[in-house]
Design a protein around this nucleic acid. Structure first.
Length: 286
DNA sequence: TCACAGGCTTCTG
DNA sequence: CAGAAGCCTGTG
């Protein structure tokens, strides 16, 4: 057990944010309260949130080694919110609604596969596919503080590549199956590990260009991988929702230059508000 | 950084 | 039927 206080963080908002697809609210009956499970790569933890107070099921060592970085504790979200244009009513409303969203420092390989799945898809189906992929190819793990029946790690490239394209049938991947099979093939060789490593060491522009060379990765998916898998927070993914936001609320274009260097965080506030704002504001009215 | 149409899986509203 | 955290290919 490790207890700590964290500002500008809300687990429910993160679970709804469309950047991580393996975060779940635990059954109220099992523990009661606002308990969540978080899984990434081969790590698993349960967290209770009570306002700014967070109780982690792991010990302090694991928090320091794994979760401190995962939840991006070194970025000053308060300063970023303060820098938002006070005359920008839409952005201010977005921050009021989803100010507990952060850019998680997730696993690069997991993000590549997850955002290949995300294209022309919706969050419910993405979650189902990622889940199915983990159950079919991931290693079943049990650890301190993990669920009684264990959990599945995110599958290694070798595990997915072993069965080839036919192994991906029945996971709801649709036409994206061949992109994933090819990416697994690329990443499981020694050369693939070197490719992932050089991707991690590259700057934003270089990483974006390297990603675009791969089948199934276009401009938007490359930006998502840069933002969520490489923590290049200057990346500003433009998807169908952001396009609609810009068209409706920023007819002269979004003022990217104002937020140069961290526009990706602003994008997350906008995106979150677009997909969850109405529902959350309706709940707050009651 | 040529623009644009059509196709691609599958599921929800 | 349209739309979903789009991309690829072919065409003019």
């Amino acid at each position: 057990m490790y207890i700590t206080e964290i500002d500008h963080m809300d687990l429910e908002q993160l679970a709804l944010s469309g950047q991580c697809f393996r975060m779940r609210r635990l059954d109220a009956a099992a523990g009661g309260g606002n308990w969540w499970s978080v899984t990434f790569a081969d790590h698993y933890v349960q967290i209770l949130q009570e306002g700014k107070k967070f109780t982690f099921s792991c010990e302090k060592e694991e928090f320091d080694e794994v979760w401190y970085s995962y939840f991006d504790m070194d970025t000053d979200y308060g300063a970023i919110k303060n820098a938002a244009d006070s005359g920008d009513a839409y952005l201010q409303a977005a921050i009021r609604c989803g100010g507990g969203v952060r850019i998680l420092r997730q696993d690069l390989w997991e993000m590549i596969i997850t955002f290949l799945i995300s294209q022309n898809n919706n969050i419910t189906r993405i979650t189902a596919s990622v889940d199915a992929l983990c159950k079919k190819f991931g290693e079943k793990l049990t650890g301190a503080g993990s669920a009684a029946d264990g959990y599945y790690g995110f599958p290694a490239p070798e595990a997915i590549a072993a069965e080839g394209l036919s192994g991906l049938a029945g996971l709801g991947l649709g036409y994206r199956d061949r992109y994933i099979a090819r990416m697994a093939e690329l990443c499981c060789k020694d050369s693939g590990e070197r490719w992932l490593e050089s991707l991690k060491n590259a700057d934003y522009e270089t990483a974006h260009a390297m990603l675009l060379e791969q089948m199934g990765i276009g401009n938007k998916v490359a930006d998502c991988i840069c933002l969520f898998g490489l923590h290049h927070i200057e990346a500003f993914p433009i998807d169908t929702h952001v396009k609609q936001i810009v068209k409706t609320y920023y007819p002269k274009g979004f003022p990217l230059e104002r937020y140069r260097g961290y526009a990706g965080i602003v994008q997350q506030y906008l995106f979150f508000y677009k997909i969850n704002g109405q529902k959350i504001e309706a709940e707050n009215m009651r």
